[in-house]
């Protein structure tokens, strides 16, 4: 069984938002909404500053509060790779998932359903990378299968230091940030 994950090298990321734009055009995300976004976090005092730049999105958690809070079963784990998806037809737009997500990764699409990053599963199933990964001018984003020890993502998590977001939430997220 594959387990998809995204690994993002914060050392290379310049926060240019190309990932956000590419997602928007690839997935026709409506004006005023985004499925991914950039966070810049600065620590320290001028001029001794450290800056972490992160491209953030749904973490496709192993233990997803959005799936467990969904009253209709619209939010679910996909058959492949543990990707968390929303079945638009079953979603009633109740926002329980939006409230439960510790990453604030979901929004209600103007058409009435909960929407968020899909890891571009429509591309991945064809052998392509997610749009954000394939557009990145700095090549700072990696996508692959954690079950495969030879994948870029497995190797990077072995060789580099990394962290995840809100580990205290106990969601077991699958977007990793190299530092």
């Amino acid at each position: 069984m594959a387990r998809f994950a995204m690994v993002i090298d914060t050392k290379k990321c310049v926060g240019c938002m190309d990932c956000v734009v590419a997602c928007k055009t690839e997935n026709n995300v409506p004006e005023g909404y985004n499925r991914d976004w950039i966070t810049q976090e600065a620590f320290g005092n001028f001029p001794n500053i450290q800056l972490e730049i992160r491209s953030e999105r749904c973490n496709h958690c192993e233990n997803s509060p959005c799936v467990s809070s969904c009253p209709t079963g619209a939010s679910h784990y996909h058959d492949i790779g543990g990707v968390v998806l929303v079945n638009h037809d079953e979603c009633i737009g109740c926002k329980a998932c939006v409230a439960s997500c510790p990453y604030d990764a979901r929004f209600i699409h103007p058409d009435g359903y909960a929407d968020k990053c899909t890891f571009c599963i429509h591309r991945v199933e064809k052998g392509d990378k997610p749009a954000c990964v394939s557009v990145c001018p700095t090549n700072c984003m990696y996508f692959g299968d954690l079950e495969d020890p030879n994948s870029d993502v497995s190797k990077l998590l072995k060789s580099r230091k990394w962290h995840t977001l809100h580990p205290e939430a106990g969601t077991n997220p699958h977007v990793f940030y190299l530092t």
Binding site: K12, V14, P137, T138, N139
Partner: peptide, 18 residues
């Protein structure tokens, strides 16, 4: 560079960082 987004320069800047 990175805020100024002249594409090839930023791509190469990321390579230099790496």
């Amino acid at each position: 560079l990175g805020e100024n987004m002249h594409n090839t320069q930023v791509q190469e800047f990321a390579e230099a960082v790496e």
